[in-house]
Design a protein around this nucleic acid. Structure first.
Lengths: 195, 195
DNA sequence: CGCGCGATTGAGTAATTTCAAATCTAGTGG
DNA sequence: CCACTAGATTTGAAATTACTCAATCGCGCG
């Protein structure tokens, strides 16, 4: 399958696999397509899969006590997404995961992932590395959440992920950055005036 | 060494090791003692170690643009601490890590950790599991940072980590929760009046 | 016993949210 | 392919939440 090449290329960045190993690894992934707005994971159900995005855009969000959506993770091509807490600990999800564009993804089930990890030390290494990198990236996000003002967070985001900005509606970006749509709109407007 | 039993007991919760494996694993850890207020990791230097706390309390914090400390992680007995981003990616640290109490910890170097992971699939599995759990826990923290008010974050913290509250000064807890000491003080005071 | 750090309190201020209304925009059905 | 409409963005004013600053209090440690 064509998408298989994507995940093979991806894992190849982290561990060197033989041809057979690559095929074995890819065999546990199944191509799935989601239409824009389609629900992928919902609260209270256990997330059975994690998804590697081949092409498209997906976001994970929670609904706060006030009924407002807050984006927890945004993912586009070559990124992973799931309700991590639910998937890893196999506990009920707290998040919605939906497609923000028509999306092609590769899905792996929790059980198949366990099998892969147990089968081959290299596969285990791969999943360890992506977990570590995910943790490091979340730590950076926590730091920006607790040290920066809304405007600084916006600037950092634009700086680090310029390509993400255009692929999600503004209210999604705003909630990802921990502010209201209205306030993000005002920040952008102030910036224009300054420059 | 006595502390070795702590890490052996700990890894035993996640993977089953033979006696030899346990000894091999523990041999890469070195017991270190920190006095209260002692600096363990500092910004701009690469974090060479991660630490398993046998007994004591340690915190990691950054200094924001405004010169204020913001606690990124708090750790007590049986927890790990480091500047994750620095340690895992071997890049310059952005955080200070200091002892909040006299502390006994087990230190492992980045290189020794790589050796352990390469040597034995079980060790790799162990580090994968703690990375995953760390990522899941940080995801929960991100969610509370972006969905809850200061008062709600405080209540959740007290609920989840009642034992942590007494081991760190209030201003540390406040900065961990993303608010000022003064505001935390006011929250606590309001709660007393309500009950 | 007193020094110094941490916690509390209050007043004033800044950042951000809320609410409501006015555009703007993109997708859909005819 | 256009017109329409629902959803998204912008704008402004008022309200809230949280912060800053300054003063005071409390108390553990030397």
């Amino acid at each position: 399958m064509e998408s298989d090449q994507e995940i093979i290329k991806y894992i190849g960045k982290f561990v060197n696999l033989t041809n057979d190993e690559a095929i074995q690894f890819a065999s546990k992934f199944k191509e799935v397509k989601f239409k824009k707005r389609q629900l992928i994971i919902q609260p209270n159900f256990i997330a059975k899969h994690r998804y590697f995005i081949v092409h498209g855009a997906v976001r994970a969000y929670v609904i706060g006590n006030d009924g407002q959506e807050r984006s927890v993770q945004l993912a586009v091509d070559q990124w992973w997404i799931s309700d991590y807490n639910s998937y890893i600990l196999q506990q009920p999800a707290s998040m919605f995961v939906t497609a923000a564009e028509d999306t092609i993804a590769l899905q792996i089930s929790f059980e198949d992932e366990q099998v892969l990890k147990a089968t081959n030390h290299k596969f285990e290494t791969f999943f360890r590395i992506i977990a570590e990198r995910g943790a490091a990236s979340m730590q950076r996000r926590i730091i920006s959440a607790i040290t920066m003002t809304a405007e600084e967070r916006y600037e950092l985001f634009i700086d680090k992920y310029p390509h993400l900005y255009s692929r999600f509606p503004q209210y999604v970006i705003a909630s990802y950055l921990g502010m209201t749509t209205e306030f993000l709109s005002k920040i952008r407007n102030n910036k224009l005036k300054k420059n």
